[in-house]
């Protein structure tokens, strides 16, 4: 017997009323994500990736269709599933410790302190416990936001272009950090990106979206084990396949 999917998206459509007309952003999306799977949602800018993630996270109500997590319909935001923005989502009025401990208000002081220490260390921010976000680099802020999310021990993470604002070197480092953290903490991850390489490096499966109104064009399984060799023929073949799927030429 196969276990039930962790996340199940069924016939999801989304239309936004704008003055006068209605724009259709998502059109009957069906997707199932397995427990512990890392799925990248890849698509052109403005196609509706953030909208989809916000609906799955419970921040937006879909026009029609349903989202089920653990076979329960999503009715709103829930601390068991945390949304990670680009690094701008950290709270600038709190220190690193304050941010990591933000969601732990239900715990006693001792357990709280222990968890904060653990996650500060996990994301490599030891020594910066009392620093404020404006004293951190972009990559450190991003790791801080991931630590804040992990600290409440969610079972699903939604990441919306989390590394989009970082430079290309930091972005590569952050990807291997994410994979390292994922080995330590098994989570189901929905990762939105418009970076093809990023999706091939991270994902178990890549969901390719069409332009608006977004439908799922294709789902590509990334059948490579970690660590992935970025110059192997398989990697290049998968990347080219995705490039073609997005509708881009192979030359520039």
């Amino acid at each position: 017997m196969t276990p039930p999917p962790k996340v199940s998206i069924r016939g999801l459509s989304m239309r936004f009323p704008t003055d006068g007309s209605v724009i259709e952003v998502l059109s009957s999306i069906d997707l199932e994500v397995k427990d512990g799977e890392l799925v990248c949602i890849l698509g052109p800018s403005g196609c509706g990736k953030s909208t989809l993630l916000n609906i799955v996270g419970g921040f937006l109500k879909a026009t029609s269709g349903a989202v089920l997590i653990d076979e329960q319909e999503v009715a709103g935001p829930d601390p068991r599933r945390i949304f990670v923005f680009q690094e701008r989502g950290v709270f600038p009025w709190l220190t690193v410790e304050g941010n990591v401990g933000f969601g732990l208000f239900r715990l006693g002081a001792a357990e709280r302190a222990e968890r904060i220490a653990y996650y500060v260390k996990l994301v490599g921010l030891s020594g910066f416990e009392n620093a404020y976000p404006q004293e951190l680099s972009g990559g450190m802020k991003q790791r801080l936001e991931v630590a804040r999310a992990l600290a409440v021990n969610p079972d699903v993470l939604f990441l919306d272009e989390p590394f989009g604002a970082l430079d290309s070197i930091t972005r590569l480092v952050m990807r291997s950090e994410l994979l390292r953290i994922r080995r330590a903490e098994k989570k189901t991850i929905l990762f939105v990106t418009h970076d093809i390489d990023e999706s091939v490096q991270l994902a178990d499966r890549v969901v390719v979206m069409s332009t608006r109104p977004a439908t799922i064009r294709r789902i590509v399984e990334i059948d490579m084990s970690h660590p992935r060799d970025l110059s192997s023929p398989r990697y290049i073949a998968l990347r080219d396949l995705l490039l073609g799927e997005i509708g881009l030429a192979h030359k520039i």
Binding site: F59, P77, P79, R81, I82, F83, F85, G103, F105
Partner: peptide, 18 residues
């Protein structure tokens, strides 16, 4: 106040007074 901060606060299960 940026909507992102409110969304993050709600995501961690804060009641309105909190």
């Amino acid at each position: 106040v940026p909507a992102m901060y409110l969304q993050a606060g709600r995501n961690f299960g804060l009641s309105t007074p909190r």
